[in-house]
Design a protein around this nucleic acid. Structure first.
Length: 905
RNA sequence: GGGCGUGUAGCUCAGUUGGUCUAGAGCACCUGCCUUACAAGCAGGGGGUCAGGGGUUCGACUCCCUUCUCGCCCACCA
């Protein structure tokens, strides 16, 4: 029965089919008892609100490559998928939906609102995971964890209580980053600074009962309502005598002291700075040092409060305009100048954050950092590329406390209980336990803290919660933890090194006394043709699903890997309107090449079988004596390539892996070996030989499929089932490792074959230079003084003839040039192409003269080197020897070329 | 201000501990081909003082110093 092998590869026909088959047979599932060696990866959980982007394609493909490879190596492999509840993002989405109905979350109340969010999650939350599955990733979906799942919640609660009891979580009244849009506190990491052009206003602060004034500069005129002092530097001679005097805040009329504080920089502005402790982190510290009153003038939504008098209710920016106008009117404004400075923006909401004084929960990070720095320094956790270690250490060394409370409803509620008067509180699993901890009578009414935890407070426990650590609040160890923690590899974008990577290291070391992962691979940032980051807001990001639809999953995966050098950005031309990424053609064309070479092998196999239906596995292998040098050459190359591929993956040089595969398959296998198979097949009509030859070629090709499978899982699976498996029931998947056999490595044959390639290429060049018709067959003479080379070339004479389009080849030790032939010299081997009178004498003369010039240049360079005593003394013997041989060979070649020139008449 | 990275053909990038590197590949370009799988293909070609300067060395794209370019991260100035 002949097998079907369509003319071109149709990705869509096989992708869904194989993915279903893999998942149905649960070949990616494990209970941790499948083998002695384990390998695991944690999937960075996408946001429940997320949609697929190119970052995912790259990131997931990288993980899948390592997962598949290690499974193929026979390890017990587990890839843990999951999804993040994404506090602010998700809550905003649901609030936006409510707004459509004319409602706010307060109309629903907390409980109803959270129910709504769960409903939303059930309805839309799975989209991103289904999209990820489209990438062909081989994870065990049954192990999917949602960060709001009960088992995760329990662990998170335990961690909070433990840190609270140890005094590492504390409540503090501080200036935090407030998001007026989301109306919640943010951590420092959630704020990004951007350069903004604003105006710097210089105001007059008059002394009491005087016409004299101090000049004070500020951008934020609206904050003068919170002014409680003016600070000057204690060493600033200009103001030394003013310290202790009072000035009057414009408009407000408040009398405030002039204080001395290092915070005031004499070099900046007027040297005087107004102190507003409620609205600036530095001013807050100054206020603490000088025991100043704190006057808050801004509401949660960034409108002015009653302390702003007639400006109350105005938005902060409108208030700034109004106050500035008023100052101008009162002649209190000395000047206004253009000013560029950095302003913090909410990463999520995009609005300027407000430095805001409020009570929040903090984690004391310094005590957690020490061990986490150590495990990286010691190389227990390795970063790729390694230069991230410096960034990591720098941040960890100066680490600041982490604000973890969020004024949201969607998230893990803070497990802290307060007495009704608010004077006593503790962290506990429930109010009963809280009563006990506070020595209160059981049943005392307590209130739980209304706030929830920062989403990243669940993310930092991801290595533990995915494996159900303390899923019930108690259990320290689980089968997954036993088998798969620490995980082997984390693949993630470098922009979350602080948000996530560093914190996971701290958490696993602190709570489980183990590192969370051994290697961290930081992925490339994907940019468009102009070098801009692909992003939704820029509108320069095509939907990967459209690209997959157009080119296929394998092609998309391969292209991303092929283009993504470790530690450097990828630049990729994108066309959002056409929804196209043209460079994915690389992968598409490559897939086509792979497909067609497989198709060719099957055609030839079928031809060899004739009417018979033979099990490929029952075909007799060619003996070593029956193999030609070319067969041995491809076998040797194949084994060299496997080793190179393994090394590239071990070194996390994934792009190199893709390039080695590409070059080996395209050049070595397709361009050379497949052509040779055609010749060998044609020249030997024995059916047995032909079958055995095809089996040999298909065996090599099967190895190629195995090597390619981690990056192109679908096409390889499809071809393997068509070409390599007789009985479809035997195996669901090709997954197993190609083995390299050092015995098949043969450097002598590789060198000889390289020579054959050079000769072929030279003849092609000669033909092209004389514009000889491609179909025209011409006699070729190859002359060498080396008998071994003659023997090798003689064995390959049919292949040579085919490659060189020659109808007559003479391989000889005599260097006599045939009449009227084009002549060339490659490594002392003379090549004569009988151009049958089509020879252009002046052109040929010019070509030979150019060659002579080149050789003479090289020879004199070589001679100069060798006559340099220091070179001969210092360079290694091998280098010097090489140089001598090179010189000798070039001299011989030069002589031959000169002879060819003199014969040219 | 501090740290990290980058600069090689028109474009995107390779280039292993300095020595066949007078520097490679893909795309684009030019010439010619429907040659027994593949025109999503095949054969050939042009194109680069390896950002600039200095140094170490017998020898530098590769190591050191320095200037410049572009990019990223951290800190932050009222």
């Amino acid at each position: 029965m002949k097998r079907e092998f369509p003319k071109s590869f149709q990705p869509h026909d096989c992708e869904g089919k194989w993915y279903d088959e893999w998942q149905k047979n649960k070949i990616y599932a494990t209970d941790g008892n499948k083998g002695s060696e384990h390998y695991s990866i944690l999937m960075p959980p996408p946001n429940v609100t997320g949609i697929l982007h190119f970052g995912h394609v790259l990131n997931q493909t990288l993980q899948d490559i390592y997962i598949r490879r290690n499974r193929m190596l026979g390890k017990d492999v587990c890839w843990f998928p999951g999804m993040d509840h994404a506090g602010i993002a998700t809550q905003s989405k649901v609030e936006a939906a409510l707004k459509e109905e004319g409602l706010t979350r307060y109309d629903l109340g907390r409980e109803k609102f959270v129910e709504r969010v769960w409903e939303w999650k059930e309805k839309y939350g799975g989209i991103i995971l289904k999209q990820l599955a489209k990438l062909g990733i081989s994870c065990d979906w049954d192990k999917t964890l949602f960060t709001m799942d009960e088992s995760a919640s329990n662990a998170i609660q335990e961690v909070f209580i433990q840190l609270f009891d140890e005094g590492l979580i504390y409540k503090g009244k501080r200036i935090i980053n407030w998001s007026p849009l989301s109306q919640t506190a943010l951590s420092d990491e959630e704020v990004e600074f951007r350069e903004v052009s604003e105006e710097l206003y210089t105001l007059r602060y008059y002394f009491e009962n005087s016409d004299e004034y101090l000049m004070v500069s500020t951008v934020r005129t609206e904050t003068i309502f919170g002014d409680v002092a003016v600070a000057v530097n204690p060493n600033d001679e200009r103001f030394k005598d003013k310290i202790g005097m009072n000035v009057i805040v414009p408009i407000v009329g408040r009398v405030v002291p002039i204080i001395a504080d290092e915070h005031a920089d004499p070099e900046f502005g007027t040297g005087c700075v107004k102190i507003t402790p409620a609205h600036d982190p530095n001013d807050f510290l100054v206020g603490q040092r000088h025991n100043l009153e704190i006057i808050n003038t801004i509401n949660h939504d960034a409108t002015m409060n009653s302390n702003a008098g007639e400006y109350a209710g105005l938005d902060r920016f409108e208030a700034r305009k109004a106050v500035t106008a008023k100052l101008r009117e009162l002649d209190m404004l000395e000047k206004a100048e253009a000013y560029v400075h950095n302003v913090g923006f909410s990463q999520r909401g995009g609005e300027p954050v407000e430095p805001y004084l409020s009570s929040q929960w903090f984690v004391s990070m310094q005590p957690l950092a020490a061990d986490a720095i150590r495990v990286v320094k010691e190389g227990q956790v390795r970063f790729h590329p390694a230069h991230w270690v410096k960034t990591y250490e720098h941040w960890m060394t100066g680490i600041r406390d982490w604000c973890i409370s969020r004024q949201l409803w969607w998230g893990h509620r803070i497990p802290v209980y307060y007495t009704e008067d608010g004077t006593q509180f503790t962290a506990a699993r429930n109010s009963t336990e809280a009563c006990k901890k506070m020595n209160l009578p059981e049943g005392t009414k307590l209130n739980q803290d209304p706030d929830v935890l920062d989403t990243w407070f669940s993310s930092w426990l991801w290595p533990l919660t995915t494996m159900h650590w303390k899923h019930d609040g108690i259990t320290e160890s689980t089968p997954d933890l036993e088998a798969f923690h620490p995980t082997d590899l984390l693949v993630t974008a470098p922009d979350i090194i602080f948000f996530w990577v560093a914190r996971m290291i701290m958490a696993s070391v602190k709570f489980h006394h183990e590192i969370p992962f051994k290697d961290v691979y930081f992925t490339s940032t994907i940019r468009d043709g102009q070098g801009r980051k692909l992003s939704k807001s820029l509108g320069n990001s095509p939907d990967p699903l459209n690209i997959i639809e157009k080119y296929g999953t394998d092609a998309t995966r391969f292209t991303m890997i092929y283009l993504a050098p470790l530690g450097q950005d990828i630049k990729m031309e994108v066309d959002v309107i056409k929804q196209d990424v043209p460079s994915v053609e690389i992968g598409r064309n490559f897939a086509n090449k792979v497909w067609n070479s497989g198709r060719f092998l099957l055609m030839k196999l079928d031809e060899a079988m004739g009417e018979n239906d033979i099990d490929i596995n029952k075909i007799i292998d060619l003996t070593d004596a029956e193999l030609t040098a070319s067969d041995k050459w491809i076998r040797s190359k194949f084994n060299t390539t496997i080793d190179a591929l393994n090394k590239s993956l071990d070194d996390f040089k994934v792009t190199e892996y893709a390039r080695i595969l590409y070059d080996f398959i395209w050049s070595d296998f397709c361009a050379w070996y497949v052509e040779i198979v055609k010749v060998q097949f044609a020249q030997n009509e024995s059916a047995d030989y032909r079958l055995s030859l095809m089996k040999f070629a298909i065996d090599i090709y099967e190895g190629i499929l195995l090597m390619l499978h981690p990056v192109m899982p679908f096409i390889t699976e499809e071809i393997w089932h068509i070409l390599c498996v007789k009985n479809q029931e035997e195996s669901i998947s090709l997954e197993r490792s190609p083995e390299s056999n050092p015995a098949y490595r043969d450097s002598a044959i590789e060198t000889n074959f390289e020579l054959l390639q050079l000769i072929v290429e030279e003849v092609r060049r000669l033909r092209a230079s004389m514009q000889i018709q491609p179909s025209k067959k011409l006699p070729v003479t190859i002359a060498s003084a080396d008998e071994k080379i003659i023997a090798f070339l003689n064995e390959q004479v049919n292949s040579l003839a085919y490659f060189m389009k020659s109808d007559k080849i003479e391989i000889t030790s005599s260097t006599e040039k045939p009449e009227g032939a084009l002549a060339s010299v490659i490594r002392e081997i003379s090549i004569f192409l009988d151009a049958d009178g089509a020879i252009d004498i002046p052109a040929e003369k010019a070509r030979l003269e150019k060659e002579i010039g080149r050789l003479e240049g090289n020879i004199s360079g070589c001679e100069r080197k060798l006559s340099n005593e220091k070179f001969v003394q210092n360079a290694s013997a091998e280098i010097v020897q090489n140089e001598r041989e090179k010189l000798e060979s070039m001299r011989n070649s030069l002589a031959q070329v000169k002879e060819n020139l003199s014969n040219l008449k």
